[in-house]
């Protein structure tokens, strides 16, 4: 099913960035110079110096330690939400694209969710789960999956109408076999790309929902929250929001490069480009 022609360079680069960040997140307690919640009120809002290599925030907490400790919740939550939304969306989309009977019903349900404003979903989740990470994951997943369902459905429908599917079917293949061999390879590169690019947006969305009490509660560090809290002191201590923003940017770059590389490697269309023989349509 997935036979990459060659390893893409951007995939390697992206994976290196992500792994480096992930490893730093795992060994954060060992490499962080300070406890991330320990306050040094007399050294607040200071720039980088010998004691605090990346300076301190509004309560005199070590920014370097906070950024390191924030890797786990930030990436953890963003990746969890992305996985949930993409897998749910992909399953619903493929199901709708393959079964004509279910198509109408499933897509109308998807439309309902698509029309659901994110903030309403967030308030609903607070009511259901109370404040905390479970509520945050729900709040970001509920309005997130329909996008994936739409893409998956349209790609599935295109694939299903292809000649090769007809051929395989006439040879007696079952539905599951068709999905596995003909549909999935078409759908999943698209989904991977969208999800990889969406990870950064998820990190900033976490900060936005933090205001409603969803997600990471203070004083626990989280990139989006560090950035949004740091904005109020931008004039006196620009290093805090800038560094948090940089972390988010690098992570997003890592995921995007990985996503693009993955697509280049497994997308049947980009694979076809390497074939020297003319495409069937062109004959």
């Amino acid at each position: 099913m997935l036979k990459p022609k060659k390893i893409s360079k951007s995939f390697v680069l992206g994976l290196t960035i992500i792994s480096a960040i992930a490893i730093m997140g795992i060994i954060a307690p060992q490499i962080a110079p300070y406890d991330p919640v320990e306050q040094h009120l007399r050294h607040r809002l200071k720039g980088p110096d010998a004691n605090f290599i990346l300076g301190t925030d509004y309560l005199g907490r070590c920014v370097a330690s906070r950024l390191l400790y924030a890797i786990r919740p930030s990436i953890g939550l963003a990746v969890t939400v992305t996985l949930i939304t993409s897998i749910t969306g992909m399953s619903v989309g493929i199901m709708a694209g393959c079964c004509k009977k279910l198509d109408g019903l499933l897509m109308r349900v998807t439309d309902c969710f698509l029309a659901f404003p994110g903030i309403v979903a967030a308030l609903l989740c607070i009511a259901i789960t109370g404040p905390g990470t479970a509520g945050l994951i729900l709040a970001l997943s509920i309005p997130g999956w329909p996008k994936f369902a739409r893409v998956a459905r349209s790609v599935t429908r295109t694939a299903m109408s292809g000649l090769h599917v007809e051929t395989v079917r006439s040879m007696g293949a079952g539905r599951l076999y068709i999905i596995r061999t003909c549909v999935l390879p078409e759908v999943w590169p698209q989904i991977t790309t969208i999800s990889a690019i969406g990870v950064g947006g998820k990190i900033t969305a976490i900060a936005g929902l933090g205001f409603l009490g969803l997600g990471v509660q203070p004083p626990a560090p989280e990139w989006g929250t560090i950035m949004s809290k740091g904005l109020s002191t931008l004039a006196v201590a620009p290093h805090v929001p800038l560094l948090a923003g940089l972390c988010i940017a690098v992570t997003v770059m890592g995921f995007t490069l990985t996503g693009e590389g993955l697509r280049d490697m497994v997308d049947p269309h980009s694979y076809k480009k390497h074939l020297s023989c003319p495409l069937p349509e062109e004959i």
Partner: peptide
């Protein structure tokens, strides 16, 4: 345990 939530909640 800090719980910082919107005022209504």
């Amino acid at each position: 345990e800090l719980v910082v939530v919107q005022v209504d909640l």
